[in-house]
Design a protein around this nucleic acid. Structure first.
Length: 280
DNA sequence: CTCCAGGTTCCGG
DNA sequence: CCGGAACATGGA
């Protein structure tokens, strides 16, 4: 089919989709196929343009956050060796705008899982409980809604290889389906209040809440501290320092990396993961 | 076989 | 507030 060309300067599609912020895109030919909410999408990069199906330009422009002032964002990063290396390595990587629920739910299922496993779980949940979307001879599945997951039993979810995460995903889906937690209301709160609201959900602690805030709620200052980032902070920012507590790391990262700390975090995360023990 | 993975929660100092 | 342990599953 004919594709439309969308100007996308200062953008790296592959890095953006494979850096561990989103898990359901698959390589397809020279591009990627996936979905944004319930809209199927194919996207391919040609130098400074994105090729997308006609009438999808606006959707892609928004989803891939082509309006983020990347040069300005990178200029706000602290000037230190670790950050500079990550900034060069991740050039063109953008924090996409994921639908809040599927982002939050995916990170609830991410606890103590490798990126490949998280993707596997996401696809299984989509195929079993999401909406099937046929498009151009390809089959896509949307992420199941809170309502749909709330109707499942814990055993249904455990059957998707969720392990102990099944109870958390189910509990979160039920609280949201019941209106006990309202993601649209949370979206109107400031960062700290929104984080506190998300943390009321089972399986959502500081780290998962920050991932949801950063990748699903557009809070570009949110700084998730996972095992990789903790290694980066301890080895590159607190080298030869003893007894650095988790709280100390959180306080440091919340201020040191600035107003676009979430971008800085993702660059440090991706760079460390890709270089510290061979690309995978 | 052992170790670890984009953590959260609960429990005892 | 802090460090430990339990919690499932699969790939390295």
């Amino acid at each position: 089919m004919r594709l439309a060309a969308l100007p996308a300067p200062d953008f790296n599609l592959a890095a953006t989709l494979e850096c561990g912020q989103v898990f359901h895109w698959r390589r397809s030919g020279a591009g990627f196929e996936g979905s944004v909410g319930d809209v199927p999408l194919f996207v391919e990069q040609r130098s400074d343009c994105l090729l997308v199906p006609p009438d999808c330009e606006q959707l892609a422009q928004n989803y891939f956050a082509l309006d983020h002032p990347l040069t300005e964002i990178c200029a706000t990063f602290p000037n230190d060796p670790a950050m500079n290396a990550a900034r060069v390595f991740c050039r063109g990587l953008r924090i996409v705008r994921q639908p809040p629920w599927e982002c939050l739910a995916t990170f609830i299922t991410s606890a103590l899982k490798q990126v490949a496993h998280i993707a596997q779980i996401s696809h299984t949940l989509r195929e079993r409980f999401g909406e099937r979307i046929e498009w151009q001879g390809h089959t896509f599945f949307s992420y199941p809604t809170p309502k749909r997951l709330a109707e499942c039993s814990e055993a249904d979810l455990r059957a998707c290889a969720l392990g102990f995460r099944a109870k958390n995903l189910l509990g979160a889906a039920r609280m949201i389906a019941a209106g006990d937690v309202d993601l649209e209301l949370a979206a109107a709160l400031d960062d700290n209040a929104a984080r506190a609201e998300l943390c009321r959900l089972p399986g959502v602690g500081e780290k998962v809440a920050n991932c949801a805030l950063l990748f699903g709620f557009g809070r570009l200052r949110a700084f998730p501290v996972d095992v990789w980032i903790e290694r980066v902070l301890r080895q590159l920012y607190f080298a030869r320092k003893r007894n650095v507590t988790a709280r100390r790391l959180r306080e440091f990262s919340a201020s040191y990396f600035g107003e676009y700390g979430g971008y800085a975090q993702q660059y440090l995360f991706h760079h460390a993961r890709m270089t510290w023990r061979g690309p995978k």
